[in-house]
Simulated assay, not measured.
Amino acid sequence: MDQRRQLEVQQALQQQHALMKNFAKITHDCFLKCVTRPGKSLSHTEEACTNNCVDRYRDTQMFLIERLQAQAENEKSKHGSQGLS
């Protein structure tokens, strides 16, 4: 395997690790927030709470990604227009 391919594989593994770590954090945080007495199964309230919790995490993640992309594009256009003056 060439060096470029090894770097691509390493980056993919790092991204996968980051996703798994983020998923574990969301699971842990939502469990602590929503499950007051662990049992054999979740109550309807606990299930609804965990679903809502995960949905809010996902919404927040998407909002932040979109916001950061917009800021990056704004900075790029600022720097691009300065070079034209």
Rank of each mutant, 00 (worst) to 15 (best):
E73A: 13
H28A: 15
L42W: 00
E47A: 12
Q61F: 12
L84I: 06
C34T: 01
T27K: 03
S41F: 14
N74H: 15
C49M: 05
N74D: 13
S77F: 04
C49Q: 04
E46W: 05
V54Y: 12
N74W: 14
S43F: 05
R4F: 13
K33H: 07
R67L: 08
M62H: 10
E46G: 05
D2L: 04
H44T: 08
P38Y: 12
L68V: 04
L64Y: 15
K21C: 03
F63T: 08
C34F: 01
Q6M: 09
R5H: 08
R5Y: 01
A48R: 04
T60S: 08
A18C: 02
H17I: 00
Q15K: 12
E75M: 04
K21S: 08
I65D: 12
M62T: 11
Q16Y: 01
D55G: 06
G80T: 15
K76S: 10
Q15A: 13
Q16P: 07
I65M: 12
L68P: 06
K78N: 08
Y57R: 10
C53D: 02
K21R: 15
G80I: 15
R5I: 05
Q10H: 06
L19F: 10
R4E: 00
Y57S: 06
A24Y: 07
C53P: 02
Q15E: 09
D2H: 04
H44G: 07
C30Q: 03
Q82R: 14
K25M: 07
T50C: 03
T36M: 14
D59Q: 04
Q69A: 11
A18T: 02
E75D: 13
M62V: 11
L32W: 02
E47W: 13
F63A: 11
H79F: 07
F23H: 14
Q69D: 14
N22D: 07
F23W: 11
R4S: 05
M1T: 08
S41Q: 13
T50I: 12
N51L: 06
